[in-house]
């Protein structure tokens, strides 16, 4: 109990102090997670809509099971692959991206992508199959049809975004592996928590954990508000 109480005090202390190190960690966490999420959406939503609208899924139905497998892919395996690609000996080694935020963003995007595609696909498939024909019968172009389907699937899309956000902001294995947890450069909240726990600074680790929880809650609150607004529109 004492440890928990201390952690709460520490957390408030850190937030009130606007500790510059903490600010850098939180800033990087939001940057990496945010960019990763946006990239995953930009790539994943069109693919999910395309798969959801196409009558015959390409490659004899192998694609969808593959995506569902990807949704359960251990992040650390993704991290390992990204590491191997970006390492000196790897094919992309010349970019010198290993141990930079870019490497972390790449890993996060890959982790979030199957989630976004899979949940978008499910959301599109849950729409009444008669709707696309009726929308086209009212004079929609292919693009307008896709956009309308997206709008119809917005609840499912929000679920996709929330799930992807949750999975990458709480991810630790991959970002540790490809980011290197460098103080002031690639240290994010999750890797800082691991580090402080290892150092034996349990209450500081807990305080960071509380801040992470708070951030996740705030982000979900904003998305929920948007969703409620979208639903009543």
């Amino acid at each position: 109990m004492e440890v928990l109480f201390e952690a709460l005090l520490d957390a408030f202390g850190l937030i009130i102090d606007l500790d510059p190190e903490l600010r850098a960690i939180v800033g990087l966490t939001l940057r990496v997670t945010g960019i990763g999420l946006v990239l995953a959406m930009v790539l994943g939503i069109p693919i999910g809509v395309g798969l959801g609208l196409s009558k015959r899924i390409p490659a004899a139905g192998c694609v969808v099971p593959l995506i569902y497998t990807g949704m359960g892919l251990p992040p650390v395996v993704v991290g390992l692959f990204v590491y191997l690609f970006l390492s000196n000996q790897g094919p992309l080694g010349d970019f010198r991206w290993l141990f930079t935020p870019t490497a972390m963003i790449i890993a996060q995007t890959i982790i979030a992508l199957p989630l976004v595609i899979g949940l978008t696909l499910t959301a599109i498939q849950s729409i009444d199959p008669m709707l696309p024909l009726q929308v086209r019968a009212l004079g929609a172009t292919r693009g307008q049809l896709a956009w309308t389907m997206l709008a119809e699937a917005r609840l499912g899309l929000f679920a996709a975004i929330v799930a992807a956000f949750g999975s990458i902001i709480s991810e630790v294995g991959a970002v540790m592996l490809v980011g290197g947890n460098i103080a002031g450069e690639t240290r994010v909240l999750t890797t800082a928590i691991v580090l402080e726990t290892r150092k034996g600074n349990i209450s500081l680790a807990l305080a960071l954990g509380l801040i992470l929880l708070g951030l996740a809650f705030l982000a979900n609150l904003v998305m929920y508000r948007l969703q409620v607004q979208g639903a009543s529109k």
């Binding site: 009444d128 008669m130 709707l131 009726q134 019968a137 009212l138 004079g139 309308t148 529109k233």
Partner: peptide, 17 residues
């Protein structure tokens, strides 16, 4: 194409107002 519209036996509404 937009000069022609259709109403179906089972209408599907958009999930909007």
């Amino acid at each position: 194409r937009r000069r022609v519209t259709m109403v179906f036996q089972h209408p599907v509404m958009l999930k909007r107002s």
